[in-house]
């Protein structure tokens, strides 16, 4: 069953197509990967899905309902949460308050403060935050900030998670932990849509992968198909 589908999604920036006529769909319960060279339009596509941008043309449907044009907080409350490439943590707040915000505001039905506080604590354990929960988030290491970011997104009781380069800048051990976290998130019943540059990671955890280049989709399929696609290899190794 498809949880997210996009049809001919297009977005221009000052005359240049950042995302052009991209068709895609994500099945419920899978881990879907999005790869492509720098400037391929991956984050732009995430911004279109999560409501930061409105597509110039095309349509995006989430759980069968049209979401393109909705405000980010609406989309979030429909059950889609995201993380950011540059983390965008609330630096002056304790880590636990970052997560609390997600459960207080992002859930479809709302939550009492007590339940939200409990949830936030559990989620920080789930993502494996290695320091006390009250530490100001701005003082955390990169990997811990990313963990808080993931916990904040999960706190919205999302059915689908958009992960934007969660593994960039991590050490090999941390990357392995992050891969394991992605599988655990999937096991909670959350569909994962992730942008990643670390090939080993994305090939390891994804069920299906889509490749963007200059804003256009050039391939999609299982990791194996992608790894053997001539077109994809050309793009990555240069013409």
């Amino acid at each position: 069953m498809q949880i997210l589908e996009g049809e001919k999604v297009t977005k221009y920036f000052g005359g240049l197509a950042a995302v052009s006529n991209v068709d895609f769909h994500v099945d419920k319960g899978e881990v879907f990967g999005l790869i492509g060279p720098n400037g391929a339009g991956k984050t732009t596509l995430f911004n279109l899905i999560s409501g930061a941008f409105v597509p110039k043309s095309g349509e995006i449907k989430f759980k069968g309902k049209k979401i393109s044009g909705l405000k980010p907080h609406r989309i979030c409350r429909m059950g889609m949460a995201r993380t950011f490439q540059d983390v965008k943590i609330f630096g002056n707040m304790p880590a636990v308050d970052n997560v609390l915000l997600g459960s207080l505001f992002g859930t479809p039905t709302g939550m009492s403060s007590a339940a939200a506080a409990k949830e936030a604590t559990e989620l920080l354990d789930f993502v494996g935050l290695s320091v006390p929960r009250e530490t100001p988030a701005g003082g955390l290491t990169l990997v811990d900030q990313k963990r808080v970011g993931v916990a904040r997104a999960l706190a919205t009781k999302a059915d689908m998670l958009l992960l934007d380069e969660t593994m960039a800048g991590l050490t090999p051990t941390e990357t392995a932990e992050a891969m394991e976290l992605v599988t655990r998130i999937r096991d909670r019943g959350v569909t994962v849509f992730m942008i990643e540059h670390v090939m080993k990671a994305i090939m390891g955890v994804c069920d299906r992968i889509m490749v963007l280049h200059h804003g256009e989709k050039i391939a999609d399929g299982t990791p194996k198909e992608i790894a053997n696609s001539k077109k994809v290899i050309e793009v990555y190794l240069g013409e």
């Binding site: 930061a52 907080h73 949460a81 965008k88 943590i89 997600g102």
Partner: peptide, 21 residues
Amino acid sequence: LALQSIGLNEEAAAHSGVNVT
């Protein structure tokens, strides 16, 4: 908490479900 999150990062607040407007 929502106000504070807007001050710290308005975009992230919106994507965490805060109706920033």
